[in-house]
Amino acid sequence: MGFSMLPKVLSQMFKKPWTNKFPAKYQPSNTTKYLKAVGAGEAKINPPIPTPPGFRGKIIYDKEKCTGCRLCIKVCPCEAIEYKEEDKKIKIYIGRCCFCSQCNDVCPTNCLSMGDEFLLADSDPYAKALIVE
């Protein structure tokens, strides 16, 4: 009986917060302005926790190696890959990608791999950063 959580709470008061404050220690009043300032070198970004090895981030596509076999289109669960008839290459819409990396496994020439980029939020699903070709 008793309040067994109390000692834990009291000790927690003197500990550092567990959360990594990313991208800044305090929420900036205007994120776009803040990011511009970071770009100009005026403000510093609080680095994110490094991704573990084997992380599934934005797909990296090696166009030279691709033979246009269309196997990745066959296994993609969310129809994120489009085939370009004229140059026999593929186009990946990251906005639809579910990061299962099944296309990486099936590719016979290993031209697809998972990168470690994870900041992929965008208001436009067809933004340039969200299309890999």
């Binding site: 959580m5 567990w18 573990p52 084997g54 992380f55 990061f99 990396s101 099944q102």
Partner: peptide
Amino acid sequence: FLTWEMREKMMDLTEFLCGNRVTKG
């Protein structure tokens, strides 16, 4: 908050083993 702090450790392990945190694939 205490239990979810513990859960976060397991999520990190999941990410380490699978590459994804939730949908493991």
